[in-house]
């Protein structure tokens, strides 16, 4: 993965040294900086240096701000993580509920409605949905803020950039509510596609389980429907759903690029878009690396969650 990112970034046209020094720099100055940055070294030497830097947590210096990329990204990463977690919780809760309801009342109007909604959901351009949500809830109804993490007059002085989580833990209710209100619209926009996919997978997984003998036995015992559906069936139907939820994280982190751009969300996605415009390749490289690492970490976590859902699964 590191090789791919390294090669991709080296393929970007334009000389980083020239970009850093500006158009008026002399060729000698540019050459000196190229030498200093190691850009004249053979590719494998550059890669070894890059690998060493990455392992030390050094992602280089931003060509725009001249600040360390690691620090710049770390300052923005919590905003993206908070948005992604909120969207994933929303998508999982509503998606699983919609899928169960659809499976239990299969072939009913409700089922058709949910599945039609899910199909529209996966076909929706999230940047457009974001704009439409903004148009109705911010501009027309003025119920929710249109962008940013907090109101313009509010200052955040927390220890971390997890504004909603930290304000909740510290009991700063005004900040918490404001932060949460800012999360709602970008969260819904980002959650729509995963929600639709989760609903479809939950439905099909539930339909398979609901036909099994032990469900018939549970019903024959006289257990209430909700208990059979949620305690007996859903628990066994969850495995493919969790897999899909894990796979959606990549979609979410990628989708954050578009959502953050629309809602002026100060996260890593918007930062990457701005960096691409400015050809600030250390930032783009670091940002993609961080997002991809996050995605791999979540998939590892999903593998571990399997053992909690299904005790028959064991890792050696």
């Amino acid at each position: 993965m590191l090789v791919v990112i390294f090669l991709l970034m080296r393929a970007i046209p334009g000389d980083p040294a020239r970009l850093m020094l500006g158009e008026r720099a002399s060729p000698e100055q540019v050459e000196a900086l190229r030498e200093q940055m190691g850009l004249n070294d053979p590719l494998h030497v550059q890669f070894a240096a890059f690998l060493g830097d990455v392992l030390r947590g050094d992602l280089g210096t931003s060509l725009q701000s001249r600040q360390p990329v690691t620090a710049e990204l770390m300052a923005r990463y919590p905003a993206t993580v908070e948005l992604a977690i909120f969207a994933m919780l929303l998508a999982s809760a509503l998606g699983i509920l919609a899928g169960v309801v659809s499976a239990v009342w299969r072939n009913s109007l409700l089922d058709y409605g949910v599945m039609a909604g899910a199909l529209v959901g996966v076909s929706m351009p999230i940047f457009w949905l974001g704009l439409i949500l903004m148009m109705f809830f911010s501009v027309r109804l003025q119920w929710l803020p249109a962008g940013g993490r907090l109101d313009a007059r509010m200052m955040w002085d927390g220890a971390t950039q997890f504004v909603v989580l930290e304000s909740l833990l510290r009991g700063q209710w005004t900040t918490f509510v404001t932060g949460l209100r800012h999360l709602i619209l970008p969260g819904i926009a980002l959650a729509t596609i995963p929600l639709s996919i989760i609903a479809r997978i939950t439905r099909s997984s539930m339909l398979e389980v609901l036909n099994l003998d032990y469900i018939r036995t549970a019903r024959a015992k006289g257990l209430p429907n909700w208990r059979v559906n949620f305690r007996h069936a859903l628990k066994n139907a969850l495995l493919p759903v969790v897999t899909i939820i894990g796979l959606q994280v990549g979609l979410l982190l990628g989708g954050a690029v578009l959502t953050e751009t629309i809602f002026s969300w100060p996260g890593i996605g918007r930062y990457i878009v701005v960096a691409i415009g400015a050809r600030d390749y250390p930032v783009v490289q670091g940002g993609i690396l961080l997002i991809t690492l996050g995605m791999i970490l979540v998939n590892l976590l999903v593998d571990l969650i399997y053992t909690l859902i299904d005790p028959r699964i064991r890792y050696q």
């Binding site: 990549g250 982190l253 690029v257 578009l258």
Partner: peptide, 8 residues
């Protein structure tokens, strides 16, 4: 390649 978020 599959490990990268596609739009990214």
């Amino acid at each position: 390649l599959l490990a990268f978020p596609s739009i990214l």
